[in-house]
């Protein structure tokens, strides 16, 4: 299953916490004040509280329920109810592998974090949520790249279509658009998109709008096929 892109790096600033789901595994992904990234099971070992509701205190993540602090090694270091106590080393959140590459945050939940190969000429564009499965979105993209014209002013063609990673190419603009699919439970998904570094801001905006039109089509198609 390897590594899955769960967010753009810039969407998780220092000192912030987010929730991510990879293959049904609920995760907390957070960045310490100094910028260290961690991805853990989204569950405090004390009373099961989702750690994604917690808050960053310096280099530690504090659970929202009882304020227990976990450091970057996922080990509990402080229990506010017993300020003098040194918590046993056995109190730990479950860690998963995470890495940042190409402006994306990658997580692996099966222990096999392969370093993703990302073209160095790319820059992060945006993440976008869909209320439908990635397969539906992929069908919409295929359809729209074939139609060209209004839905795709750039005449994108599909250069590569892996399970999680698609590359679209516009000959007209000599532009590469990389799409990383992130499947979520309950018929939902995200796309994390990267684009050539030299792509002008105006074109980036247009492409961002094109992705929103995919979303309108994909979510409508899904509703139709669900009925």
């Amino acid at each position: 299953m390897a590594s899955i892109a769960v967010a753009l790096s810039k969407d998780l600033p220092n000192g912030r916490v987010m929730r991510a789901i990879v293959s049904e595994q609920d995760l907390v992904v957070w960045r310490s004040k100094s910028g260290i990234l961690s991805a853990w099971e989204n569950r405090c070992p004390h009373r099961g509280m989702r750690l994604s509701h917690g808050f960053v205190r310096g280099e530690a993540l504090a659970c929202m329920y009882h304020g227990w602090h976990y450091d970057k090694s996922a080990t509990c270091r402080y229990i506010p109810a017993h300020p003098e106590l040194e918590p046993p080393e056995t109190i730990r959140a479950q860690e998963f592998s995470s890495i940042e590459k190409g402006g994306l945050i990658w997580v692996s939940v099966d222990g096999s974090l392969e370093e993703p190969l990302i073209d160095e000429n790319l820059t992060p564009l945006r993440s976008i949520n869909f209320q439908c499965a990635s397969k539906t979105v992929q069908e919409v993209i295929t359809k729209s790249t074939k139609l060209a014209g209004d839905t795709d002013p750039f005449n994108f063609t599909t250069k590569a279509a892996g399970y999680h990673h698609w590359v679209l190419f516009s000959e007209k603009k000599e532009l590469n658009l990389h799409l990383f699919f992130h499947e979520l439970p309950n018929n939902a998904c995200k796309i994390h998109a990267l684009i050539d570094k030299d792509c002008p801001a105006q074109i980036q905006k247009q492409i961002s709008r094109m992705m929103e039109s995919w979303r309108r089509s994909a979510e409508t198609d899904y509703e139709v096929s669900a009925k």
Partner: peptide, 13 residues
Amino acid sequence: LPLDPKMEIPTRA
């Protein structure tokens, strides 16, 4: 609510 003490770690509080 988990009743198996191994599932959630309590303290004196």
